[in-house]
Design a protein around this nucleic acid. Structure first.
Lengths: 122, 122, 122, 122
DNA sequence: GTGGTCTAGACCACT
DNA sequence: GTGGTCTAGACCACA
C-alpha cells in the first residue's frame, strides 16, 4: 500500500499517517493480523523522522486499531468497541455535515456520497 | 444559543468555538444576516481569552461562514462555494467513515445517522 | 513538594517522575485541582529534559491521575475507576508479595508494613 | 506449572518470565532444589527466543532465586537476605499502594487482598 | 510563556 | 535489527 505525506498540508504528519493507515484498513489493503512496516523503514520510505512514525503508531494503538507485539512490531488488531465508535462517528458527522449543510449540500447528496465511499471500502 | 467550551478537550478552543457556531448556523439558531456576539462579550461568557474568540471568527470568515463588518461585528454570511464544500465533505467523510467501518459500523447505520442529523438541522 | 531524580537508578526518568508524583498525591502533598509545574519549569528544577517531563505527564494523564487543561496545564484529577485500580493492585501485589515470601517475609510483617505506609498517606 | 507469555504486554518477556517463576516458587509449585526446564525447552514451550529465557534465568540468579548448575541447569536456591527483601518490599509497596490510594482503595481492602494472596501462596 | 510538533542523534534493552 | 529512552534545539499554535 502507498502511504504518502503531504508536506504542505496543515495536518500534522502523524495525523496524516494515522488517517491513511485507517483508510488502508477500511479498504482492506491492510487486514487484521497484518504487520505494519517498522518505524524506521516507514520513516525512510515516506521521508519523515522515525519518532513521528512512532507517534502515529502510538495513537493508532491507543485508538484501538493496532497492537504492538514485541516480536512482530505493529500488528493490525481492531478492538471492536462499536458503541464508542458510534458515539465518535456521530460527533464527527455532526460537525462535518453542518459545514456541508451551510454551503447548500442536500441530504440526498450526502447519502450518495456515503454509498460511494462504502463501495470503495468493504 | 449555548456555546460551551470543554477545557479538557484535545481540540483547541478556537476550533471548538468554530464548530459550535457552524452547527448553530446549520441548525438555524443563527441565520444569514444575524450578528454574532462581540468578541469581548463571547470571550467573557464562555470564559476564554478575547484573542481566542478573535481567532475563531477569523477562521470562520476565511472559510466563508461570516463576514466581519466594522459596525455590526461578525455577521453570518455564507459563501455558497458548493463545489469546494463537496470536495471538503468527501475528504472528511472518507476519514470519518473509515474509522467507523474499521470498528464494525454498517453502511445502513451510517445512513440512518445521517438522516437523523439532517432532521435536527434544516 | 520535592521531586528528585536518581540518575543512577535503573528506572527510566519518566517512571521515577510518575511514581513520585503519584506518591505526592497519595500523601496529600498534591491535592485534587492543584496544578503541577509546567514541563519546562519542572525539567529545569530536576535537571532533565523537557520532553522527558512531558512523557511523564502523558502517562499520568493516560493512567487517570491528571488532566491536561489548555489554560492551567497539568491539573491533578483522579478518575475513580476503582474496579480497574483493584485489579491492577492485585496483579502488582501478587508479584511484589511473591518476591517477599520467597525471601522469608511473613504475612504479619507485610500487614504491619501496609499499615505503616497507610499512616504516612491519608 | 504453566508459564505463559503475553506477547502484547508492555512488560518485557524476560520480566514476565521472571515474575511467573517467582510466583511459582512462592506458591510452592517450584521448591528449593527443584530444577527449572532447560533454556531451550522453556523457550520452545512458551514460544520465545532462547536468549530471552537465558536473560530471565540470569536475573533470577542475580536476584537470589536460583543458582545455575553446570550439570543440572537452573536450580531453585533462595538466598534468604531478608533484610534486603524487606527494603525492596517497602519500596515496591509504597508505589503500588500510592496508586491504589489515589483511586480510592481503602486500607482494609488492601489488608484483605494481602491475606487472600497469602492464602494462595504458602 | 505554554505545550505540541518535528527533527536528529545517541545509547541501550530486547528479540 | 527493533523499539524505548533520553537529550537537544527549533518552530509554531495557542492562550
Amino acid at each position: 500500500m502507498f502511504i504518502e505525506i503531504d508536506f504542505n498540508s496543515e495536518e500534522a504528519f502523524y495525523i496524516q499517517l494515522r488517517n491513511q493507515i485507517i483508510i488502508g484498513i477500511a479498504t482492506n489493503q491492510f487486514r487484521e493480523g497484518d504487520t505494519l512496516p517498522s518505524v524506521r523503514q516507514l520513516a525512510e520510505n515516506v521521508g519523515i523522522n522515525m519518532h513521528t512514525v512512532n507517534k502515529a503508531y502510538s495513537v493508532l494503538k491507543q485508538e484501538g486499531f493496532i497492537r504492538l507485539d514485541r516480536r512482530k512490531g505493529a500488528v493490525i488488531a481492531l478492538d471492536a468497541d462499536k458503541l464508542h465508535a458510534m458515539e465518535e462517528l456521530e460527533e464527527n458527522l455532526r460537525v462535518v455535515l453542518a459545514r456541508a449543510v451551510c454551503k447548500g449540500v442536500a441530504e440526498e447528496e450526502v447519502h450518495q456520497m456515503v454509498s460511494e465511499i462504502f463501495r470503495e471500502m468493504c
